[in-house]
Each structure stands twice: as C-alpha cells, then as structure tokens.
Design a protein around this nucleic acid. Structure first.
Length: 955
RNA sequence: GCCGGAGUGGCGGAAUGGCAGACGCGCGCGACUCAAAAUCGCGUAUCGAAAGGUGUGUGGGUUCGAGUCCCACCUCCGGCACCA
C-alpha cells in the first residue's frame, strides 16, 4: 500500500503542469469565457498571507471548475510593484527599489506556484514594466486632453516621517495610514483628477452590477450623494447674499440663524462691528488640525457677526448670522441655514448660544398594530386634541389611562372644541373622565404630534392632532364620575420609570421626550406647522414646493472630492507633463512615452516636499514639445493607485506595445466576470478603477461601462487569539511552513473549510489536521476501487441506490456551492460522501472518479495523482465536470417524521414519492402516534410528501 | 449617532418555515500494540431513574410547526461619522 507523501507528489505535478501549460487561456476559442480575478498583490516583503491564499484559492476553485465545464478561462496574475513599503525597505537597506521589488516578486511567484494555483503565467503583468506604465501615462494624457486632469493649489497632508504628501483617503484620524505619524498641512500645487465629474455615473451604475451589498453601500457612502436645494438668504442692508445648501427645504420656516464656514468668502466682504473677534476666531479655527475639527463629539464653537442679519426668503424674518467651524467649507456651499428644532448639530449650537428653537415639523405616527391600523379606502376625520399629563407632586407619580375594553394604555385625552382654550379643555376633560377637580397648570408644550389610527368605537379613521398640557395635582379631591365614563377608563398612577413599558399608544410614549422640557429634536419627516401656506402638508412632499416658492435651485451634492494625483516620490510613474516658460503646461507627445524614471543613486524623499526627481537636473531639463524652447519636466509621480486602476485590462493583451490592449481581445475578455479580494480594496481601489474604466469607455477604448460584473470579498483571517494578524504582534502564519508540513492540498482545503468564505474567522493550526486526514483517507480509498463489471458478476458488489443518490446529491451540492461561495459546505458534503464510501467493501471506479473530479478544484495535486494512478492519461483538471442526475436524487426511501401538535413523536420509512393519503394513513396507524392522539379527533392534518405528517389535536 | 453584518455545544460552524447541532476540531471509551504514537470503531447539548421535559442573545407575535418570518430590545464585529 502506497503512503500519501504530499511533498514529492505536489512538486511532481506542479512541474508537469508548468511544462504542459494547460492553464493558458485561448484567445481564439469560441467556448464560453470566464475571467476570474483576484486583487493585485503588492510585493511588500511580508510574503503571502493567509487572506491572499483564501482569495486566490477560492477563485482558483471556481476557475478549475469552469474549465472542467468546458469554459475558456483566463485566470491571470500580476504585480502592483509601485508600493511605498518597497521603497521604504529600499531606503532602509540602501538598495534600489527595483531590486527589492524583483526579490519580493520572485518570492511571491514561488509561493503562489507552491500552492498549485492555476494562473496563466504567460499573462503576468507588472506595473513597473516601462511598457506597462507607458499606457498608464497615456491614460493620464487622455484625461488631460479631456480636461479631467488639472493642476490646483491645495492644502496637502504631509507625512513628516515618510516625507510624502498623502491623499485625503490615506489619512486616518489625522495620521498617516501607513506609518501612523501625525500629518502636517502644507500648501502645494498638485495634479488633480476630476473624479467628481463621474460621481453620478459611479453612483447610479452600482445598480447594474453584482457586488456584495455591503460593497455597494460602501461605494455609495464614499460618493455621498445627497439631493437638496440651494436657497438664497439676502443680507439686510447689503447687496450680498448667502447661498445655503439644505436637504430639508421643508424646514425653512424653522430657520432661526444662518452659519458660514470660517473659510467662507463672504466674511471678508461684509462689514460688521466685531471684525477683530471674528478674525481671531477664524484664525484659531484654521489652526486646529484635522483631528480636532472633525471630532463630532467636541463642543461646537462660533462667533456672531454683530449687526448682520439674513432674511429668510420664506417669511421675511431676520435672523442672526454666525461663523462656526462645524460648518465645512468644502461641502455644499459652505453656508448652512440652521434649524435647531430639526437638526441635532444646529440644536447643540443653538443651546450653547441661547438661540431660539422653532418647531415646524410635527411627528407623524401611523397605527401599525392590527386593530389600530387605519382602514384602507377610508377618509381621515381630523380632530384637535389635547393629551393631559398630570403629576402628583406628593409621590411624583403620573396619571395614566387604561382602557377597560381594549388592551391599550395611555394618557387621558380629549377633543378641543372650536375656539376653546386648550388648558380649559384639558381641565374639562379631566373633570369628566377622572373627577379630579384641582389642577395647577404647569406648562403647555410647543411640540405637537399627529396620530393616524382607526377609532374602534366611532368606527372611523382618525387623524388626531395632539398638543400636550402638563398639570400638577393640587389635592386629591374628586367628584363623582359618570358611570358611562367610568366603564371606559381606569385610572392608573405610574412611577416615572414605569411609563416606558406601560404606554401602548403613541401620544403616551411620546411624552417621555418632552416630560421635562421642550428640548426635543425631530429629524424625520412629518407634518408641517407654522409654515405659512404649507402648514398641514407632508414635509416630504412640500420639499420641492417650498424650494421653488423661494426661487431655490434643486441640486445634487457629493462628499466625493477630486482625486489628488500627485506624489512627491521617486518610485512611481512620472506625470508626463512639461512646463514651458512660454507655453505653460504641455503634455509629452504620445510617441515619446514612456517617460521613464532616471537611474539614480539617491531616491529618498526630500525635506522640502519637492520630488527627489527635482534634483536630477539632467532629467528635469528638457525641450518644450510645442515651441522647442527650454522647459522643465514635471517631477511629481503618480500614486500607486494609478497602475492598479486598469491592470485587469492589460491581462487581456499583456505584450501589446501599440495599444494598452487590442480592441479584439478586450471585446473577448471584458468585463471581468468575477473579482474577489479583501474588503480593504472595496472602496478606493474599486472606485478609482471604475472611474478610469468609465473614462476609457467614454473615449471608446473599452467595450463596457463597468469593469467588473461581480465583486466579492473574502473574510479577514484573524490570528488564533481572534486579533488581527500583524508582524509586530508576531502572530503571522507562514504559508511556506504549512505547505512543507501539511501540503498545499491540505492548506487549500482547510482555508475553504474553516468557515463561511465572506466572514472573518480565526486561524486554528490544530484544526488543519482534519483536512489532512480527509486527504489521507481519500488516498487510502483508492485501494478499495474495483472494476464494477468484474466484481458485479461475482456478487461482491451490489447496486446501491442509497449511495448513488448520495453521489448525485453531492454533485449538485458541490456544483452549486462553488458558485455561491459556499466552499465550507462543499467540502463538508465531500467529506460526507467519502465517509459513506469508506463504509463500503468496495467502490466502483466510476464512483471514485466522480468523487475525484469534484474534489479536484480543492485539492488539485492529490486528485491528479490518483486520477493518473487509475490509468488516465489526461489531466483531471481538463476532464468533464460531472452532472447530477435529477432522477437519481429521488430514488430510495425517505424518513417521514410525524408531529403531533408540533412535537415530533414518531418517524417511519416510506418511499420518497409516496402519496399524501398513504402517508397520513401510515402515520395514524403508528402506536406511538395513537398514544398521543388518544381518543381525540384530529382537527387538521398537514402532509409534506417525502418529509413529514403533522397532526393537530386540540382539547 | 448613522449604515451594514452577526449572536446556535468545549471550539470553527451546518440547517429552501419541517427530526437543531450536519461536517470538522477537541474530549471520552474501546480495538490494534509489550507500550506509545498513528489508525480504526463507538460515544459526545442539557435536566430526569424512566416516561418525558428544556434548549439557537432577551421579551412579545404570526403559524399545525420558528434558529429561520414580523415587532421591540440587548451584546459583539465591520464601515462611515459635524456631509446640513
């Protein structure tokens, strides 16, 4: 008996596969095409980590399976080598970044090969290849030509440790994303890409692609689109106007002040008394660093522009104007109309500076519970109503109402007659319904609510407009209550803490918000009040009408900013622009591309913030392509995002030196069918590459408007303790060791089996033994394989319907699970099948071969080896993928479960296709069942063929 | 705070509304062995002597039947966060 030796076996087949080149994609094939992609590795010196392997293996499994199903598969691999870690390492060791990159890339390549991944290595792509960045530069020039690349003076985040400028996205909590150093702010001219011009498309087209929902949500969050109105507030005694952006023009009547961002241009144009104070505030606000300014928890500050008043365009009211740094200059118009009653930030500010709060949107509650839900097609009767809150100061308890005929708990309420004073109405109701005579009015709330419900006594839909009156009980003296009233209500006194659980009606629960004061912020939509002719309207519906009424423009705003594309580093694609004293910025002509990096001794970042390239005069000095006069090259380079924004296109045609890829090949392979990678690249890289792709689509280079049909993500693999794996914690798993000790097949199976693919999971080395044993048992199983015909006649092997049914079930399960990323359950079902096969005295060759084929994508080496040992000449990875025979699935018996009153009481064997009536009769005849039914008559019997019989007896 | 996702044995986790805990790890017992490892077989939620009961974060609800659907809440993880 041969023993399973993974080491020799795996090396042998890896060599064979490389020699035969079986995984090469075919550009001429007319077979169905499939193009799975994994994220671009970043050769950082750390080597492959377990997350990479999970991603590559998953796509490898899908690719192998699709190949076996006869599809033409392109599973490519490449390297994004323009990485800062590489450059840092080079600086540390005094070597050239290229050499470091080469070494790291070689290591990655070796590791990937040792895992038996079916990449088409002939399509390998590397962003540092000059022929590759020729086309990266070419795309930039096209963008420049179309006005999408421009130079602007902006404040950049400067990392003093790495000595580079960072994009906003690279700053986390005011610190450099990579090294954690606090960033400084510097002003610099930077190349920008106008990604905001594509914001709408990037947002809308998410509807047309198959991404994991959370990925779409992240994209939408990042783009941050919101719709609203720009409204103009005139300034009293001035021709200047303030434009404020709001998504809630419906709250316009509730504006009590207006705020400008400290950077707002209007501040310098207006004249007001306290200029010195304001200037001082603005200076201090600008000095605050990113962390302080964006901390939402910190107290809001601001200063009033003395003597300046803005005029509310809706009602002509004059409101004060403030400068405050809680308003961001970069978003919207840099000015905000403040509605403290309906915005939390405005409320916090208003409270601090004693500004008025005016409620103009009343909450709206619609009954949802069965009985109280409004009846459809029935009009609403409107009622002015008062909800009465009575507190007994003696014990602090509150007077509540429990309806006797319904399970409803609330307050005592009543209607307000036309022209009646609300406090008088409340007192009258209290007297009638509870008999309490002596009440002291405490306050009447300015907050009102609307409830929509079905009135069970009056049998009509009601719209009640509730206002709230608060009383203290002077004494407990009561008068007799009418019998009719007493029959409806029951008086209950409740402690304050009990109220929350007690109330079952909206007007009751709501008072908890306003029990102590009217400091209540309602940010949802509701019904407008105190809003001139719009009062009573639904606020959602009134939005546009109010904006229109005051001549506001309806606009879309985005959180997304243009992309800062310049980096002051050596290691990156030089931005192919030349600055001429006469002609200004001139693009490098296409035929002079690529602009290569000069060979240098020193490539360290400079302290001045200039690119290291700036010091290499021989490279900088050049001729102007236009006037041939003296000119200088741009010394900024592109960020590493540049090359990775279009690499997947190059896979289609990696050696093309006339175009970034040929039209024919792009048409053949685009778009990427399935892209899997880590969550860390699902916002920025994904957004940037979608942006570039859409641009290339618009200029006719690529045939689709979206680059990836489907985007998924593997869950992060955590260290054994459940924390993140990191080099500094020393809890990183080294895949080389695992491959040596357990074998690539075991590692692959384990990574797929360990848990749901898209969820985070802890690594557990000791669990690796499971998959390892599984593979060993598969290997041992080959000794039981027999030729069916020979043995069948000797009677040693009988047809086994159960096993056959299981085999076909497994085929269906594995086939489906691979597509839906249910890799863990696919492996589990293979284990179930192998357990069943082991129990047999002999296994037919046909069955074993089907089993090997199903396992082949997961464990390519051992299956190939066993496949050949059965005498097969061709690779198992090109064999025909098995197809489940539906008819085989239903063969054999089923266990029918019998439930009595929902509890399982018995089970019996029956044919899978047995009739309902037969099943019912059999179930009823069982002693176990009779025992539970007794002499009672079954009320109802539910039969699910092939599954269960459920008998209901009552009494 | 907002938006996602998730709460099931000792652990990782299974379960189109239909026998909860598949599969794997671990653990226990047994076989083989002088012995150990490896391997193989059996067992492994919980209370109860048994009949039977109880169990999928908590509390309600819908249903013949709920881990799964609905409502309210709690906890954890991820993302965003003064975006008007």
């Amino acid at each position: 008996m041969k023993k399973y030796d993974h080491s020799k076996l795996e090396k042998k087949w890896q060599k064979e596969w490389e020699k035969s080149g079986i995984y090469a994609a075919d550009d001429k094939s007319d077979k169905k095409r499939f193009y799975p992609l994994v994220e671009f590795p970043f050769p950082s010196g750390a080597g492959l980590h377990t997350g990479h392997i999970r991603s590559y293996t998953a796509m490898d499994i899908v690719a192998r399976k699709r190949r076996m199903q006869g599809e033409n598969v392109l599973y490519p691999i490449g390297w994004d080598a323009f990485g800062l870690p590489t450059e840092n390492y080079a600086i540390k060791t005094g070597r050239q970044p290229e050499d470091v990159t080469k070494e790291n890339t070689d290591n990655f390549r070796r590791q990937l090969k040792s895992l038996g991944l079916s990449f088409d290595w002939s399509r390998e792509v590397n962003t540092t290849d000059p022929e590759y960045f020729r086309w990266t530069q070419w795309i930039f020039l096209k963008m420049y030509e179309k006005g999408l690349a421009y130079k602007a003076k902006i404040a950049i985040n400067w990392c003093p440790k790495d000595k580079i400028g960072l994009a906003n996205e690279e700053v986390v909590d005011g610190r450099c994303e990579r090294c954690g150093t606090a960033v400084e702010e510097r002003e610099k001219e930077q190349w920008m890409l106008a990604i905001t011009k594509y914001a709408d498309k990037l947002y809308d087209d998410l509807d047309s692609v198959d991404y994991l929902e959370r990925i779409k949500i992240q994209q939408r969050n990042w783009i941050g689109r919101s719709e609203g109105a720009e409204l103009e507030f005139a300034i009293k005694g001035s021709s200047e106007k303030i434009r404020a952006f709001t998504t809630r023009p419906d709250t316009l009547f509730g504006v009590t002040y207006v705020v400008l961002a400290p950077e707002h241009g209007l501040v310098s144009k207006l004249s007001f008394k306290n200029r010195a104070e304001v200037e001082k505030y603005i200076a201090s606000a600008k000095k605050k660093d990113e962390i302080e300014r964006t901390d939402a928890k910190k107290e809001k500050t601001g200063v009033k522009l003395d003597g300046i008043f803005a005029i509310n365009p809706a009602n002509g009211e004059e409101v004060p104007v403030f400068v405050a740094d809680y308003v961001l200059s970069e978003y919207g118009t840099g000015a905000v109309m403040a509605v403290p009653a309906h915005d939390e930030r405005d409320f916090a500010f208003a409270k601090k500076y004693g500004l008025p709060v005016k409620h103009v949107v009343e909450p709206k509650f619609v009954g949802i519970s069965g009985e109280g839900a409004p009846r459809a097609d029935m009009p609403f009767e409107y009622r002015d109503a008062v909800a009465i809150v009575v507190r007994n100061p003696k014990d602090g308890k509150y007077l509540c109402n429990s309806w006797k005929s319904f399970k409803m708990h609330g307050l005592f309420t009543g209607g307000i007659e036309k022209g009646e004073d609300i406090v008088e109405a409340a007192k009258r109701e209290m007297l009638e319904e509870t008999g309490y005579k002596n009440l002291k009015h405490v306050r009447t709330s300015s907050v009102a609510i609307n409830t929509f419900f079905y009135h069970r006594v009056k049998k009509q839909n009601r719209h009640a407009h509730f206002r709230f009156v608060f009383f203290d009980l002077v004494n407990e003296e009561r008068q007799e209550v009418d019998d009719k009233e007493a029959a409806i209500h029951e008086i209950v006194w409740k402690e304050r803490g009990e109220l929350k659980d007690f109330f079952t009606v909206y007007e009751g629960s709501f008072i908890l918000n306003i029990l102590d004061s009217d400091d209540y912020i309602y940010t949802d939509h509701g019904i407008l009040a105190d809003s001139g002719k719009f009062s009573g309207m639904d606020s959602e519906e009134a939005k546009r009408e109010i904006a229109e009424e005051v001549g506001g423009a309806w606009v879309k705003k985005f959180k997304l900013r243009d992309w800062v594309f310049s980096r002051q580093r050596y290691w990156g694609e030089p931005i192919p622009m030349v600055k001429c004293g006469k002609c200004g910025w001139v693009p490098v002509p296409e035929k002079e591309l690529p602009v290569a990096l000069p060979k240098v001794e020193r490539y360290e970042p400079t302290d001045t913030g200039e690119s290291p390239l700036a010091e290499i005069r021989s490279w900088v000095e050049t001729k102007c392509p236009k006037c041939k006069g003296e000119a200088e090259r741009e010394t900024d380079t592109m960020p590493n995002w540049a090359g990775s924004s279009w690499y997947y296109l190059r896979y289609a045609d990696p050696k093309n030196n006339k175009e970034l890829a040929s039209k024919e090949r792009l048409a053949l392979w685009s778009p990427v069918d399935w892209y899997n990678g880590g969550m860390e690249h699902t916002t920025l890289h994904l957004l940037y590459s979608r942006f570039w792709h859409k641009f290339l689509f618009d200029i006719g280079i690529v045939p689709t408007s979206e680059p990836y049909k489907k985007r998924t993500s593997h869950g992060m693999i955590l260290a054994e303790g459940g924390e993140k794996m990191s080099k500094s914690k020393g809890n990183v798993i080294n895949p080389d060791e695992l491959v040596t000790n357990y074998g690539a097949d075991t590692l692959r199976v384990y990574e797929m089996f360990m848990g749901p693919f898209d969820q985070a999971i802890s690594w557990d080395t000791k669990s690796l033994i499971g998959p390892r044993r599984f593979i060993e048992r598969i290997y041992a199983l080959s000794n039981k394989v027999v030729d069916a015909r020979a043995v069948m006649s000797s009677g040693e092997l009988r047809p086994n319907k159960e096993l056959e049914s299981l085999l076909h079930k497994t085929i269906g399960k594995v086939t489906g699970d691979i597509e839906s990323m249910g890799f863990n359950t696919a492996v589990s079902s293979l284990m179930i099948l192998s357990n069943a096969l082991e129990k047999e005295a002999a296994v037919t060759r046909a069955t074993y071969e089907v089993f090997l084929k199903l396992l082949a994508p997961f464990a390519p080496h051992v299956t190939e080896d066993l496949w050949h040992s059965l005498g097969n000449e061709d690779s198992i990875h090109m064999a025909q993928w098995p197809v489940a025979d539906e008819s085989k699935l239903t063969e054999g018996g089923a266990t029918i479960v019998v439930q009595v009153n929902g509890k399982v009481r018995a089970s019996f064997a029956a044919d899978r296709n047995a009739e309902k009536g037969d099943l019912e009769r059999t179930a009823m005849s069982l002693d176990e069942v009779k025992k539970w039914i007794g002499d009672k008559k079954p009320e109802k019997v539910i039969v699910v063929p092939g599954k269960l019989v459920s008998i209901v007896v009552r009494g």
